[in-house]
Design a protein around this nucleic acid. Structure first.
Length: 794
RNA sequence: GCCGAAGUGGCGGAACUGGCAGACGCGCCGGACUCAAAAUCCGGUUCCCUUCGGGGAGUGUGGGUUCAAGUCCCACCUUCGGCACCA
């Protein structure tokens, strides 16, 4: 008997799969009828900043198990791979070490592709795409034009988080504790012209999850997105500022507390501020403007100044002093508030500091209004609507909705990204590059180092072009796009990756999409997952595709941590698969990463247990070769081992399909193997070995394939998934547990078809049980069919 | 502060609908094979007591429901994650 040599086996079968294009799938031709069972399996694409680490190995191996499982269950499976290959790290590496970001990126991609192929993942490599390739980004530009024409991509001056180290704008979801999430430098506030996607106009759509039948998103993820969008219902109310002859609108969710307003606050950036002539106000605004949003938010005490003007409360005519304070934010609501210190924590803090009156207008216990004029005594809930209605009649207010969600700032003053296809013309303004002139190629530049302006602007030959509209001198947009734009539609390109007429074909995209099962980290909930949903909703309205959600099912793998924090290149705590693949083989690596624990929980990386997995594969090898010596059973004998094999089929299938649990199937196959090794001459030994090999195939496809061949069969990857015979899952006898007052006192093997009263009398007659019954009367006997009898005496 | 998830042997974890707690694996202990080691195989391994038959305790803590609770309910503790001047 020869030894298990993982490296020989793995190279052999990888070559066979490649030669036979085992995991490639064709799109249907025109008029070809769609099979009922088609499955689009996708895991979040990697960012090629280095090589793969254990987090990637977990993610893609999980997707691989699902891919094999679905394929063998008769599904046509699309399982592509690509690279999110634009972005800062490659550019920073180029600045640091020299070389071109493209070369660095492509070198990394090559290395990762080698790693992926070594791990034997069942990927359709004919569909590989990379975001930085012209064939891809020209369609990113094409899609940008659709957004621009629909008025959803626009340019505006906006306060932004500026990272002085990366010399670029940082989206507010990537500012953590006031620092740039990438490099840790504290961000600064700046007012800059930026490109925005009007995602806020899809806020309500994004609150709806229009999932197809069978779709499922984790509740947790939906909650994170809902909180992020932060829809609040309330009212906008107009306050009169006599001194300035102006009406100022406030947004509030608590119109019922309107009678409790004792002062009024506007944000330092509020347009009204410019009209107030007051030195203190001017000084305050200047000081505040220089501070970042984060600094302002972490102040221990509230700051602000009185403006000298007053706002009239429309409900009772009271004149309220107007303050400027930075605890009111210009980009939420209207940038102005009515302050109700009696019922709002922040207003109370401000009132206490500035010695302003605090008035209670709601009886918290009864939930009714007090000291509120005509509304005194009304229930707060009802008063809300009534007060707004009264204001509306007088033209001083209306119901309103506000969102926490902000528009998506997607321009970056950096080199390594998709150019924005826009030309500025003195006469025509902001002009989109016509579709037929795409792509706008990313030009070469001398120096990638950011100098506050985008590196593209330094290539003057590229920069200066005739205006597409009037032909006069124009200037190209020199900013590039956020990489989240690239990744918001990559899953649509996979269905039709070589299309040179369109980003994708409508028939192909409707055939495969939405993605059946998407696997990736929960950390992308408010970024990538939200942006992708926004894209799909827009493209659906544009008639480019026929579905409303990109991902039918979403699963978040836990992250692999080392030293208590998530493994990542930027943290520098990475462990890659290579040395373990060298030592134990890809199959052991794959089985081990999934055997470590539940896939949705974080796990601390350790290779302590991989020996056990390697042992398991060697035992499987030996036991199977031994079983292969035995003749095939023409009819399966009914032995305990045969039943165990059927039980294992059932368990593994249910765990993968219904519970999406990947570690317990391995344990189940180990159990089967243990029983086989205890009973090597059982007449069902060969069947047990075949079953174990077949069931482990999605996890360890190489060794499974080799053993399958040695069992005299071929192409396990295309073999139908085994089926558990229900008759073999039933047992004629079972071990009856006998309890007295809930404590186990005996267990006996009994026939499965005994009636309840028979089981009770058997229980009573057990000598061990009688010792505990002690002549006392059995008051009650509880029978759980197929499991236990509980005799109750007290 | 608000919202959410999780706490089970020395370790990773299992227990699907309330019904045998600790499957499977790691580690450790003992044994076989060997000149020896590796590899492999066999046995043991929650804790405490034991006359070796067995008995008792036990799933973060305290209470409750139930014939029966890791699982359900209430309160609390700890850890992790999300949001955090969002009016």
């Amino acid at each position: 008997m020869d030894r298990y040599e993982p490296h020989e086996i793995e190279a052999k079968w990888q070559a066979v799969w490649e030669a036979e294009k085992a995991f490639y799938v064709a799109n249907p031709g025109p008029g070809e009828s769609a099979p009922e069972r088609r499955w689009y399996q996708l895991e979040m694409l990697p960012y090629p900043s280095g090589t793969l680490h254990m987090g990637h190995v977990l993610n893609y191996t999980m997707g691989d198990v699902v891919t094999h499982f679905r394929r063998r269950n008769g599904w046509q499976v699309l399982r592509p791979m690509g690279f999110d290959s634009f972005g800062l790290p490659a550019e920073n590496a180029a600045i640091r070490e020299g070389g071109h970001p493209r070369e660095i990126t492509e070198r990394n991609i090559e290395a990762i592709r080698v790693q992926m192929k070594r791990l034997g993942w069942a990927i359709d490599w004919d569909r590989e795409i990379s975001a930085h390739e012209v064939d891809y980004y020209r369609w990113t530009q094409w899609l940008f034009l659709r957004f621009f024409e629909a008025g959803l991509a626009y340019r505006a001056a906006a306060p932004v988080n500026w990272c002085p180290n990366d010399q670029t704008v940082v989206a507010h979801e990537y500012v953590v504790d006031g620092k740039c999430d990438r490099c840790g430098t504290p961000v600064e506030a700046r007012n800059l012209e930026q490109w925005f996607m009007r995602i806020t106009s899809y806020a309500d759509d994004l609150l709806q999850f229009d999932l197809p039948e069978g779709g499922h998103w984790p509740e947790r993820t939906k909650t994170i997105q809902r909180n992020w969008i932060g829809r609040s219902e309330g009212a906008e109310i107009l306050f009169r500022v006599d001194e300035l002859d102006a009406d100022v609108s406030v947004f509030t969710t608590r119109p019922d507390t309107l009678h409790g307003a004792t002062f009024f606050v506007i944000a330092p950036e509020h347009p009204l501020v410019e009209r107030i002539e007051n030195e203190d106000v001017g000084a305050y605004v200047r000081v505040t403007a220089a501070r970042s949003g984060e600094e302002r938010a972490t102040d221990d005490e509230k700051t602000g100044v009185f403006t000298g003007v007053h706002a009239t409360n429309p409900v009772n005519g009271e004149r309220l002093p107007v303050y400027v304070a930075d605890y009111v934010l210009m980009d939420y609501g209207t940038g102005a508030i009515m302050a109700v210190p009696g019922h709002d924590e922040r207003d109370r803090e401000f009132a206490e500091r500035f010695d302003l009156p605090i008035r209670t207008v709601i009886d918290e216990e009864r939930g009714t209004l007090v000291d509120s004029g005509d509304f005194t005594g009304a229930q707060a809930d009802e008063a809300k609507a009534k007060i707004v209605e009264q204001l509306r009649e007088r033209g001083r207010g209306a119901p309103a909705v506000s969102y926490r969600l902000r528009d998506w700032s997607f321009s970056r003053q950096r080199y390594w990204g998709c150019p924005i296809p826009i030309v500025y013309c003195d006469d025509c303004g902001t002009v989109p590059v016509p579709e037929q002139d795409l792509p706008v190629l990313l030009p070469e530049v001398e120096d990638y180092r950011p100098k506050g302006v985008a590196p593209l602007a330094s290539n003057t030959e590229w920069l200066h072009v005739p205006c597409p509209k009037c032909g006069k001198d124009g200037r190209r947009e020199a900013d590039t796009m956020d990489t989240f734009v690239d990744s918001s539609w990559y899953f649509l390109r996979y269905v039709d990756p070589r299309n040179d007429q369109a980003p994708f074909d409508r028939f192909a995209v409707d055939y495969w999409c939405p993605v059946s099962q998407y696997i990736g980290g929960i950390d992308h909930s408010t970024g990538h997952l939200l942006y992708s949903r926004f894209f799909v909703k827009f493209l659906n309205e544009q008639g480019l595709l026929g579905f409303r959600e990109p991902f039918a099912r979403v699963f978040h793998q836990g992250w692999v941590q080392m030293g208590g924090s998530k493994m990542s290149k930027s943290r520098g705590n990475v462990a890659g698969p290579d040395h373990l693949v060298d030592q134990y083989g890809a199959d052991a690596m794959r089985v081990y990463i999934l055997f470590m624990g539940p896939a949705d929980q974080n796990m601390e990386w350790s290779d302590d247990g991989i020996d056990g997995v390697a042992r398991f594969l060697r035992r499987l090898w030996r036991a199977t070769l031994e079983a292969a010596e035995r003749p095939s059973e023409t009819e399966l004998p009914d032995t305990p081992l045969a039943r165990k094999a059927h039980w294992t089929i059932d368990r593994v299938s249910k765990d993968i399909e219904q519970r999406f649990q990947f570690h317990t199937p391995i344990a189940a196959v180990m159990e089967l193997l243990n029983e086989l090794m205890q009973a090597p001459s059982d007449p069902a030994a060969r069947f047990a070995a075949e079953t174990a090999v077949s069931l482990i195939q999605p996890y360890a496809p190489h060794v499974a394939e080799e053993l399958w061949e040695r069992l005299g069969r071929s192409r396990l990857w295309a073999e139908p998934w085994p089926h558990a015979d229900p008759a073999m899952l039933e047992r004629d006898t079972f071990e009856l547990v006998i309890q007295v007052n809930g404590r186990v006192r005996d267990r006996v093997e009994v026939s499965a078809d005994l009636p309840d009263d028979e089981l009770v009398s058997m229980a009573k007659s057990s000598p061990k049980v009688q010792a505990f019954l002690d002549d006392t009367e059995v008051r009650q006997a509880i029978v759980v069919p197929g499991r236990l009898v509980n005799l109750v005496t007290n």
